[in-house]
Design a protein around this nucleic acid. Structure first.
Lengths: 360, 360
DNA sequence: CTGAAAGCGCTAACAT
DNA sequence: ATGTTAGCGCTTTCAG
């Protein structure tokens, strides 16, 4: 007992299987890849030999020889804002509030995975950290047949370098690109609906936008925010508040200057959640003294009190679409890049001042 | 315009880079894998050439030549109970209640991913569907250096066949295995604490267990359930109720026979949530007429009313541990298989009859 | 229907 | 410090 424990063999190859079955390696390969080209009896022979030997085909060798890997990649975000360190014991938060999972990227990832599996692709997920993004990008790009990338993960130059080598789909508002497909949502429409609600239903007239607008989607939201205010005849902020992530400071400043607006329209749910925290720490009533809204539709938005009014994105559906576009481009390399736009849904809950909804 | 749109080049190789830089392919390889073996000036030369050419190393070729892929695999579950079909438009549930995400496997997966990235491994995720589990298993096993598998996904024979070829860690209660490492939680301890609470605090004396016990963890829970009742001097059910998944029928039966127990102890949160639904559909008050408890600590348990009393597992930490064990076995193939047990945490909320907790 | 043989792109001895 | 070369395991013509 325990003698061979932990031993990991090198593993049998096609040669071993071929020898055992008394056939050539080509026949072994055909048995698995093009079964019709092999007589049934031979096929069974080979399969039996493979089973007895515990044969597991090397995907690397197959990929190298065949020119494709059969896997799709997703470049996600490694760094999570409220992330904890799992390397220690399994201690649980006494009151885990799922602020860091699932986020936008996780919900999209789920859609990507489901759709890949439906199509028989494996999914390779890599996490980039802005610091090492190009290394990670290159690494994963070398492993897959097509790659999905979140907006803001990497810079445009890198993006195009990779897109020249394999199909790439970016999750962001479309831009005048020729070689990159994009999947995104109607940021402008969602923002418009949100502002209409705030202004029309709650009579807000002093609204501010919170959060940095460093990528296409975010700036589209800010732009739509301004446009909506303009057409409502309300004052239009030139800049978003708190481009940095220090929401405590933002709130402290607003309170001390007695400059709290009617509504704080946040660029994402994550920002909104943090802002609500800061507000409540400062004893400001939400939505009594100030309405706060988000954008995305994270699960966490329903776990807080007040529940977050937001604009929901069909994240899983977007992930699935990304995969379909990718596969389409893999199978038809000559087709032009294709971009898809999804609708969003204004979801009114408590943080704008509406009464609590019921659900179970 | 549009002329070369969508064209995917074959991609430059080490040969192209070597030629461009005026060096040999070995130098190119060394530049990336063992930089110290190449003079700085040469290195820069090679890097420049690579950049200009848009060189992306083939992970397949590297893996084949090097004998390792640099990726870890996770065999997850493809089929989701309340899963929807994302292939259509992006229509959102009017009242999405996250019953199908994130589940246990998703939270563990998150831990796996985070830890892999920390260690520079890519993660390959495959989804198995019991129907095709061995195909998927073999496929992913051929792609990675180590594999994490959820309990109940595949049968033991397959498991050992794969474990003979590469390090495998299974997320389940440990068993008398020699070549497979396991990571799991103290199912018995958690169940005991739960029953103690139900009996001690709420005075339950007629408890039933709900859900199938088809894997080691589940049956450990049932076993502990029985043991706890026994030592409390209460009647001990011989079998779980509703091994099948038809909770409507279970409730209908219980109600019609007027045989509702004090408490329904469910094998998982998923089952508990479904049972609560069925109970409420039948106008049975939870926890008024019957207490219901779960096991796992899913997010969804906090979104329902009444909030679910459950036993939480440190899922992300378990995922991280799986990766550490895997890497350890990859680096030290001679070490024996290692199993880890994590503590759980009784989390009392409303569905057992306790007053609502506050959190934000 | 089956076998022989030529790579796929890269790594790592071994030479120089 | 750099070049030569022999595979890694498999797919896939091309012959037989």
């Amino acid at each position: 007992v325990g003698k061979e424990v932990g031993r990991v063999a090198k593993g049998p190859t096609v040669y071993d299987v071929a020898e055992r079955a008394g056939v050539s390696i080509a026949t072994v390969s055909f048995t698995f890849r093009q079964p019709t080209k092999v007589r049934e009896s031979t096929r069974e022979l080979v399969k039996a030999a493979a089973r007895e030997l515990g044969y597991i085909p090397s995907a690397n060798a197959r990929g190298l020889a065949g020119g494709r890997t059969g896997a799709l990649g997703l470049l996600s975000l490694a760094h999570r804002p409220a992330g904890r360190d799992w390397s220690s014991d399994g201690a649980l938060d006494p009151d885990d509030n799922c602020r860091s999972f699932p986020l936008y990227v996780d919900e999209v990832q789920r859609g990507v995975e489901a759709e890949c599996w439906r199509h028989g692709y494996a999914v390779m997920v890599a996490g980039s950290d802005t610091s090492n993004s190009d290394v990670v990008l290159t690494d994963i790009a070398g492993r897959v047949d097509g790659l999905a990338i979140f907006s803001g993960t990497i810079d445009e130059a890198e993006l195009h370098r990779v897109a020249a080598r394999l199909p790439v789909v970016v999750l962001s508002e479309s831009r005048p690109d020729d070689d990159v497909s994009r999947v995104s949502v109607d940021n402008a429409g969602g923002m418009r609906a949100l502002i209409d609600h705030l202004v029309g239903t709650h009579g807000s007239h002093d609204l501010q936008f919170v959060g940095s607008v460093h990528d296409a989607d975010r700036s589209a939201r800010f732009k739509a925010f301004r446009a909506a205010l303009r057409s409502a005849g309300l004052p239009v902020p030139r800049q978003p508040l708190a481009t940095a992530a220090d929401h405590q400071a933002l709130v402290a400043d607003l309170v001390s200057r007695n400059a709290l607006p009617d509504a704080l329209v946040c660029v994402t749910d994550e920002v909104a959640l943090a802002v609500i925290d800061a507000l409540q720490d400062a004893k400001v009533d939400v939505p009594g003294q100030v309405a706060v809204t988000g954008f995305d539709g994270l699960v966490a938005g329903r776990l807080v009190s007040p529940q977050l009014t937001t604009v929901r994105q069909p994240m899983a559906a977007m992930g699935a679409m990304v995969v379909r576009v990718l596969i389409d481009r893999i199978e038809h390399p000559d087709k032009p890049a294709r971009s898809q736009l999804f609708p969003v849904q204004l979801t009114v809950r408590e943080s704008c001042g509406c009464p609590p909804a019921r659900f179970r």
